[in-house]
Amino acid sequence: MTESARSEGIRQLGESTYWINECYAHADAHEHVSVYIVKRDNKHVMIDSGSYYHRKSIKTKIEDVSGNEGISSLILSHSDYPHSGNVKSVQEKYGKLTLIASSGAPEVQGLDDAIKCTIGESMVIDGLKFSFVDPPLADRSHTTWIFNHDTGILFTADGFGNHHDPGQCNYISPEFGTGIPREAIYKFHYESLSWLKYVDARVIGDALQTIIDDLDPSFIAPVHGNPIASSDIPTYMNKLIESVDRIGSEYTVGSAF
C-alpha cells in the first residue's frame, strides 16, 4: 500500500489492521460509514462491507490494502444496509471468500450463504481468532460486536460513534487534541440510537465498562466514528455516559408520539 493511498482514507491501526474510512455528509458534519480489514500472512479478513453509496471507493481501497491476494473472509456485524450494502459486489469480486454473520435466519436477512457466528462464542477465521460480543449499543437484535484477539481491536459497529468536521475524516482519537468532542458523541447517539431516551445511563455504562474491562482493547473501531485508541477510551466513555444521560433528560414522555 502506498503512502498516498493512506492519505486518501486508509489508516493503519497497529501492525495489521486497516481502517478504510468513508464519510457521509450531514448538514453540518460528517459521519463515517467505514469498513476494516485485518491482515494475516496472505489472508485479509474484512469487517463489514460498507454502503453501496461508497462502493467504488471501497473497492479501490480494498485493492490498495490487499493487492493481488484479495479478501478471504467477510464478517458482518449485522445486516443493516450501510453495513451489508457491498456483500454481493465483494463476493462477485472475491468469489471464494467466506461470509460470516450472526443472523439466526440468514435467508430472511438476504444472506443465504452466510456461516453463522454465535454471540458469546469464538471462531478462528483465516488464522485469526475472533470473539463475538453482545453489544449494549446497537440498532438490530442480531448485531454482534467483533473482537480480534490477535490485534486486540474491538469492532463495535453502531456503537462508540461520533460525528466529525470535514477536516477530521482521517483522524484517530489522539489527533483530536482533547479527545473526540463531547457534542460529536452526543449528536451521533441522539440521532442513531433513539431508544437511548429511555435508558438509565448508569446501567448501560456498567455494561459497557464490563466489556472494556474484560477485553482491554487496543483500539475501539466503530463503523460510524473515528477509531479510539486505548488511552482515550476512559475519556470517551465519560463523554458517552454524559451524552446518554443528556439524551434521557431531554426527552419528555409523550413528545415523540
Binding site: 449494549p136 446497537a138 437484535s141 431508544w195 437511548l196 429511555y198 435508558v199 438509565d200 446501567v203 448501560i204 455494561a207 434521557g248 414522555v253 409523550g254 408520539f257
Partner: peptide
Amino acid sequence: VMFWLEYVKPEKVNEEIDH
C-alpha cells in the same frame, strides 16, 4: 428484539405505554 429494554428505566417506558 428489544434488547435495549435491559438498560431502561422501566417506569419511563411504561409511562410511554400509558401515553
